[in-house]
Design a protein around this nucleic acid. Structure first.
Length: 435
DNA sequence: TCTGGGGTCCTAGGACCC
DNA sequence: TCTGGGGTCCTAGGACCC
């Protein structure tokens, strides 16, 4: 593996020292959205670019060198990097190219666990007879993705998912790191704790206040100390990963347990019209997805964010699941107004609806329940939904909607971006929980 | 001119039941 | 009369991930 990655130093270079047991590959496309834009428009190559509108969704490595990162307001990104080029995303291209990369992975093993549009775990333990050692497979995958698709891909090869993931992060950008069996502790020892899966800014700060900065330091603290510091379960998991204990296997994702939608509003007065139209739009998205997935929700949660980023949630669990757009709109509306009036706020910056306690159902739900709409209304709404779903299936989503549900304000992000994110969240609902 | 949209998991208190 | 423990569900908030 000579010369494949300049940053694959340390134990990772022992690629031919026998990586029997290092059968997990984590493959992660670098700065995915930005790399696609640079692929589509050669004029953007080697330049600092960001994908987004008012906010940066992704930044090229040339832009990251200036401190530009995802989630940053565009004005701030420009001030950090005056020559930054901000482009609108080609969200449908992202889906196509992400799928094409996954197809390359599938050429080497059927065991591909896609965890986002641009990232997957591969178990290649059964692939060596056909394709050689995991290290050779990883090299070949990188080569093919680069030559056939044109995108840079970083890979980590190790015994466990966690270690493979850490390795691919260390390998970025456009590199490969192999953690040879027997060298795991050595590899992890000096890395910052923030590379551990599940250790974010808050946990890292708490650990730092206790003098813990590296994975080695975390692994060395007495049993129970981590749990005292960050809580029972989080502490357990964190300590296990620091000690390289990770029993997770590469496999299919579990069924979705919730579905939601949100809309940032900038800063607007909390008028009944605004709340009604925004929640109507969001409920339409969520409810139609539920119906398409043949499921319904017992719990509805509304999140309301106010200027200053403070947010509150209100939720309710109903005796019967719902999947009707208008009923979801009404339930969400009551929750939202409860929160807005309790908080005595007059302006909003975001509204969100989430549906959980999802229950699979094969027949159309039209069951009334105490406190819900009366039976004839439920049946009528169900019919309306079915008609709308059918019309959309034939003529497209924009063809028909609910009069009161037209999203009045300018959408904060393009429709294609929402669709990309939704499609990515699509996972089968557990049909064993059918009503 | 202070922030996108999609998710998961955990904690803690209270209600309720046995 | 006062008192005990355990389990489950619901709600609100927070941390984290892509």
């Amino acid at each position: 593996m000579a010369g494949d990655a300049g940053n694959a130093g340390g134990p990772g270079d022992a690629g031919d020292a026998g990586d029997a047991g290092a059968n997990v590959i984590h493959a992660d496309l670098d700065a995915f959205y930005a790399s696609v834009e640079q692929l589509l428009d050669p004029a953007l190559r080697d330049r600092p670019i960001a994908v987004g509108g008012g906010v940066v969704l992704a930044a090229s490595y040339q832009a990251r060198a200036f401190g530009v990162g995802a989630g940053m307001p565009a004005w701030r990104a420009r001030s950090l990097c005056p020559e930054l080029v901000i482009v609108n995303g080609h969200f449908r291209e992202y889906q196509h190219l992400g799928d094409a990369v996954m197809d390359v992975f599938s050429c080497f093993t059927p065991s591909v666990e896609r965890i986002s549009i641009d990232e997957a775990f591969l178990d290649v333990s059964g692939a060596s007879r056909l394709f050689g050692a995991p290290t050779s497979i990883a090299l070949e995958i990188r080569r093919r993705v680069r030559e056939e698709i044109g995108l840079p891909l970083s890979v980590g090869v190790a015994q466990s998912k966690h270690l493979a993931k850490v390795a691919s992060q260390v390998a970025k950008p456009d590199g490969m790191v192999v953690v040879a069996p027997g060298h795991e502790e050595e590899f992890l020892h000096d890395l910052p704790v923030s590379l551990i899966w599940g250790v974010g800014p808050a946990t890292a700060a708490r650990l730092a206040s206790a003098g813990i900065h590296t994975v080695g330091q975390l692994a060395a603290v007495p049993d129970g100390f981590a749990r005292h510091l960050v809580g029972e379960r989080a502490g357990q998991k964190m300590a296990a990963l620091a000690n390289n204990v990770d029993p997770r296997k590469v496999g299919p994702a579990r069924p979705a347990s919730s579905m939601g939608a949100q809309a940032a509003l900038g800063r607007q007065r909390a008028t009944p019209e605004l709340v009604r139209s925004t929640l109507g739009y969001l409920a339409d998205r969520v409810a139609s997805r539920m119906r398409a997935a043949k499921c319904a929700a017992r719990t509805v949660t509304v999140r309301v964010r106010f200027p200053g980023l403070r947010s509150v949630t209100r939720s309710v669990t109903m005796p019967m699941p719902i999947d009707t757009t208008l009923t979801l709109t009404e339930v969400a509306g009551e929750l939202a107004w409860t929160a807005i009036s309790q908080e005595r706020q007059i302006e909003l910056s975001l509204l969100a609806i989430s549906a959980s306690h999802l229950v699979a159902h094969s027949v159309q739900l039209a069951l009334p329940f105490a406190g819900g709409p009366p039976a004839p209304k439920v049946a009528a709404r169900s019919q309306i939904d079915r008609a709308v779903d059918a019309a959309r299936a034939r003529f497209g989503r924009q063809a028909v909607g609910y009069a009161a549900v037209v999203f009045s304000s300018t959408p904060s992000v393009p429709e294609e971006f929402r669709e990309l994110a939704e499609r990515h969240a699509e996972r089968a609902i557990d049909q064993s929980r059918a009503t």
